[in-house]
Simulated scan of single mutants.
Amino acid sequence: MEDEHTALKVEAAIIDLIGRDKLTNRVRGWQSGVFGRVEVNQLISHYEREQVNIDEPAILIRLNRLFRYDMNDIELYDATRGVWRIGEDREKVEYAFAIFDGIVHEIYKVIAWFKAGSTFNTRGPLEDEPTRWEFVGQTAEESIRSKYIGKSVEHYLPRSVQNPIKYVNIKED
């Protein structure tokens, strides 16, 4: 192998290919949630990068540190919904977009916002932080999901921007 980084990627891919349940490994391999097995539609989205413009009032939430390709629906929802340091414009959004690597992976219809740590989540108890918020919602309707999932929104969230949150189509008061 050229270097340790390449060797670790190959190890993660092989563990995914063989199946962790057939091995004695306690973990799947280095960053295997990012570099391991990926669904074909996710792979196509990653390389095709079809850009889409968002029409609805939305909040884009970049999940770079929290995202894994093998996340189940509940894990992705909990990672997307909170806890975020955001302002009052949160009340103006209709949809929250789960973004990884500039690609839309899921969309949620926001029902209500709550102080961080005040609603149940699968990540366990969260510290009560007065400046952080989380939303409760549901998977968006299919007409919205089919319009955006798998498409690129990296023009809204350039890699050079540190903030993981971006409001889109929010009307000024």
Rank of each mutant, 00 (worst) to 15 (best):
N53L: 08
V93I: 11
A12E: 01
G124V: 08
R159S: 13
P158D: 03
F97D: 00
V110L: 04
V27L: 09
S160G: 12
D55T: 14
Q51V: 15
H46N: 09
I61W: 05
S45W: 02
V83T: 13
V104E: 00
D78K: 01
L63Y: 09
G87H: 10
K147N: 11
V161Q: 14
W84K: 09
D73F: 09
L66N: 14
I103F: 08
E127Y: 09
F35T: 03
S45N: 00
E75G: 08
V10H: 11
A98C: 01
G87V: 12
N53P: 01
K151F: 03
N53R: 14
L76A: 03
P130T: 14
D173N: 14
N25T: 09
V52G: 02
Y167S: 05
R28A: 02
G19D: 05
S118Q: 14
G117Y: 03
V161W: 02
F100I: 06
V110P: 07
I54G: 04
E129W: 09
A116Y: 02
E129H: 13
V34T: 13
N64E: 14
I99R: 03
R65Q: 14
K92S: 09
K115G: 07
D128L: 11
R68I: 06
V27S: 12
G124R: 10
S45M: 06
A13Y: 05
S160M: 10
V168L: 03
W84F: 11
I107G: 02
D101I: 02
S146V: 11
I14M: 15
Y108K: 04
K151I: 08
Q138A: 15
S146M: 10
V10Q: 07
N64Y: 13
K92H: 13
Y77D: 00
L17W: 08
E48Y: 10
A116P: 09
I170W: 00
V168G: 08
V93K: 07
V34Y: 10
I14S: 04
